[in-house]
Design a protein around this nucleic acid. Structure first.
Length: 816
DNA sequence: GTACGCAGTATTTTT
DNA sequence: TACTGCGTAC
């Protein structure tokens, strides 16, 4: 059908691809959707597609746009691509949505109505800007918590809405919208943009500036989108503009070839605005003729895949996909029921130890949990056992307080109007400028209608003197750093700001001093990487392939940006000759500005414990996109996973199920699932039922295991009944392969009641032998009652569901 | 301007 | 439990 396909099918690039992958890689230049299941070689297809397009001359490096969500994914793509082709990958438009938007805004800052030196607010900065605004306008922070306002504003932007476009439903919403308006004005005044604004402002640029839009539409003949199921409304609209849809969403026939790659079953970010529905919309609006499913899984053994398939079957409205593998069934999935979260952690240690003894490697073992709070118990146990581990998530390098302080000084050099940064450091290190003085400064700035920086000289008194001195210090620093290298600038700032001195004087400041020194290193390597060094020479164009047969080449698409990605306004636009579009400034961004952007857009590694060979701990969300030989999914309990906040609506529950699906499909060879009967949560002991997701897995793939005798249960000192009962009952739980269904499971530990029988009449009025009613399980007979007060629990035998342990403080049991 | 203690509140997260 | 934010006391 397509000439190019047969023509280039011999390419070594295409070796080893399966039929579907090959079809995806060699699709004709038309809109297409790839449904890529977990472990189906999605990234390989994406990068091979790019390489193939380049190699066959269907597109030049400059004519291609590839979008991802994370920097990690973008980097991965670049790395693999440069391994496949001798192409200069640096100038290519491969990056995150936000990174690419940023690049466009830098190139067209005037048309986007931004100051040239605009700065990016991260979430912390955004929140403090919001808090400041709340104070200024005397907004009741009880009724309108800043966090909630932040959420609201981000949500509006994700939907592509400006304050003036919104009509309030009620008074409450009207005030939020008003606040949104105020916030926008403040950001504009201060020359800062938040993450959502990067996207929205760029969308508006493309929507409103015909010349700019048309230029890029002509340029990017091929657009590839990774993780398409995670796109939000705005990102989809942005793609439509670039692809050749007009602002009304009408399809323009000369649209570019958009290749969307995604998996509806792995959509786990609806809570932050992702719209799986974009996949169906895409098919409809782009009149997609080519849909390819990648269902061949190269990652997991059969049992694991089967479990994943069966679980996800419980969701409705799926696009429909079933993973298959050519690997054997492999081992059964091991399921473990622990008496408590502590016992669960002890069991983890035990299993990990035997895995290690069998020769599994530590970094190939992942411990997953639904929420971060669960990591603590596990960490404690790992620590005690002396097992090296690494926790994903948490503070990242550029988010550390001392680094943010240093960056704030640096930002003030570039943009003195950045009030958020000024407020961060105006009295840090302490220089006698208290809340009172800052308030006066803010009043003055408001009265004069200028930035805090400019208002400083207008104040009299002691406060005025101190503030003027601070501002003067910044201004002097700016002059001193003129024409210096980035390294010199940062070193000067660290010295003259007093930051280094301050932390050196601090008994516990050693780590922080180290981090500040690391900042200098980070800047240094950034400069080297980006070719900002003094003798940096523009790299030659690296055109590896001639123009393809009969395929249109726009003049603009021939230019491969030789400079650093994103920071050269001229190269952002491409070779301009034939086009009316000019970048707003011929100057390239200064190394400092570029570095500040880098810091904001890539908050760095969360190098908590960078131990090379360590067990990996992370939330299920963080595990997306990763894979491990052995995976433990812990805390499989109702209320935890699925999380209680998601259980009310079906969509929420289905997202939780997809989350579980993601978790399961991380495992290559061995998968463990565990839950605990009791768990400390928010300082309270909770009795959770096992997760419904366990019930939704095929029994034939599971194997219930019991703890090793005497190997655990004593290490962690919670003087709880659960622990004691478990230790006294080495044989409880089930042994060997699963009983029929979940029914008999709980009955197996009916003997756990080694707790003294009750003497006094219990307040809850539940007694052995009673018939009771439960909302979920219906009617049942009480077998055992134990514990008192909040700890009281009962074992009830339900005809349909078998015997269950229920916490009487939580479960509503009514005598029949 | 800082230090302490109390109350309220708890997902998931990238850019 | 553990963290944050706020108010009070020095």
């Amino acid at each position: 059908m397509f000439e190019t396909q047969s023509l280039f099918a011999e390419s070594p690039l295409l070796q080893g691809l399966n039929a579907e992958q090959l079809a995806a890689v060699t699709l004709p230049p038309e809109p297409a959707l790839i449904l890529a299941g977990a472990g189906s070689g999605k990234t390989r297809v994406l990068t091979t597609r790019i390489a193939w397009l380049l190699q066959t001359g269907q597109v030049t490096p400059g004519g291609l746009l590839a979008v991802t969500f994370t920097n990690k994914a973008a980097k991965e793509m670049l790395t693999r691509l440069s391994a496949m082709l001798p192409v200069n990958v640096r100038g290519m438009w491969i990056g995150t949505f936000h990174g690419l938007c940023h690049r466009l805004l830098r190139a067209h800052w005037k048309l986007a109505n931004l100051p040239q030196s605009f700065q990016i607010l991260d979430m912390q900065d955004q929140l403090s800007a919001i808090k400041r605004l709340c104070k200024q306008h005397q907004i009741d922070e009880e009724r309108y918590p800043p966090k909630q306002l932040q959420w609201f504003i981000a949500g509006c932007k994700e939907d592509g809405l400006r304050a003036h476009q919104m009509s309030p439903r009620d008074e409450d919403q009207r005030r939020k919208i008003d606040f949104y308006q105020l916030y926008e004005a403040q950001c504009q005044r201060e020359g800062v943009v938040d993450f959502g604004e990067l996207m929205l402002r760029c969308y508006e640029l493309l929507r409103d500036q015909d010349a700019v839009r048309e230029h890029y539409q002509r340029r990017f003949r091929h657009i590839l989108v990774d993780e398409f199921q995670d796109t939000n409304k705005l990102q989809y609209a942005w793609l439509k503009l670039l692809a050749g849809h007009d602002e009304n969403g009408r399809f323009v026939p000369a649209g570019n070839a958009v290749l969307a790659v995604g998996d509806d079953d792995q959509s786990i970010y609806a809570f932050r605005g992702a719209r799986v529905g974009n996949m169906a919309d895409f098919v409809r609006e782009f009149e997609v003729q080519h849909q390819i499913k990648l269902e061949q899984n190269y990652r997991s053994h059969g049992n694991i895949l089967e479990a994943a398939n069966q679980l996800i079957e419980h969701n409705s409205g799926r696009l429909g996909k079933n993973l298959r593998t050519e690997q054997g069934a492999g081992e059964p999935i091991r399921v473990f029921e622990a008496a408590s979260d502590f016992a669960e952690a002890d069991w983890l240690i035990d299993e990990i130890k035997s895995l290690l003894a069998e020769g599994w490697s530590r970094q190939e073992i992942a411990l997953l949990y639904r929420s971060n709070a669960q990591s603590r118990v596990i960490e404690t146990a790992l620590f005690r056992a002396g097992l090296p581990y690494r926790v994903y998530g948490g503070l990242r390098f550029f988010e550390r307080a001392e680094i943010k302080h240093a960056l704030a000084y640096l930002r003030l050099l570039d943009n003195p109007n950045d009030d958020t940064s000024l407020l961060r450091v105006v009295n840090f290190p302490p220089r006698g400028i208290g809340a009172r003085s800052v308030e006066q400064l803010q009043d003055a700035a408001r009265a004069l209608g200028c930035s805090l920086h400019d208002a400083a000289s207008s104040l009299g008194g002691a406060a005025g003197t101190k503030l003027s001195a601070f501002v003067a210090k910044i201004d002097v620093l700016r002059e001193q750093t003129e024409g210096r290298t980035l390294r010199e600038i940062i070193e000067l700032v660290l010295q003259h700001s007093g930051l280094l001195e301050h932390y050196r004087a601090d008994r516990e400041g050693a780590d922080r001093v180290e981090n500040l020194e690391e900042l200098v290193n980070a800047a240094e390597s950034f400069v080297l990487q980006q070719g900002f060094g003094r003798d940096a020479v523009a790299l030659p164009l690296d055109e590896t392939a001639p123009a393809g047969p009969g395929l249109t080449q726009s003049p603009a698409s021939q230019g491969l940006d030789p400079q650093a990605p994103g920071f050269d306004a001229a190269s952002a636009v491409g070779s301009l000759g034939a086009w009316s579009v000019q970048p707003d400034s011929g100057e390239t961004l200064s190394p400092l500005a570029a570095f500040l952007t880098h810091a904001a857009l890539e908050s760095g590694d969360n190098q908590a414990q960078a131990g090379q060979d360590a067990v990996q701990l992370m939330t299920v969300h963080a595990a997306k996109g990763l894979e491990f030989d052995a995976v433990f999914i812990t805390g499989l309990e109702e209320g935890l996973f699925p999380h209680e906040n998601s259980q009310s609506d079906r969509d929420g529950l289905e997202e939780e199920r997809r989350l579980m699906y993601v978790a399961i499909t991380r495992a290559r060879k061995r998968l463990y699932l565990s839950h605990a009967q009791t768990r400390m949560l928010h300082g309270q002991t909770r009795y959770n039922l096992s997760s419904r997701f366990l019930d939704e897995l095929p029994e034939s793939c599971l194997k219930w295991i019991s703890p090793k005798q005497g190997g655990w249960g004593t290490g962690l000192g919670r003087s709880g009944s659960g622990q004691a009962a478990a230790a006294a009952q080495p044989a409880w739980g089930r042994s060997g392969l699963g009983d029929s269904g979940r029914g008999g499971k709980e009955a197996a530990y009916s003997g756990a009641g080694s707790v003294p029988a009750q003497k006094s009449a219990p307040a809850h009025g539940i007694r052995v032998g009673m018939q009771v009613f439960h909302n979920k399980f219906g009617e049942g007979k009480v077998l055992t009652v134990e514990g008192q007060g909040d700890d009281a629990r009962a074992q009830v035998n339900f005809p349909r569901h078998g015997a269950k342990w229920l916490a009487l403080a939580i479960a509503k049991l009514t005598p029949v």
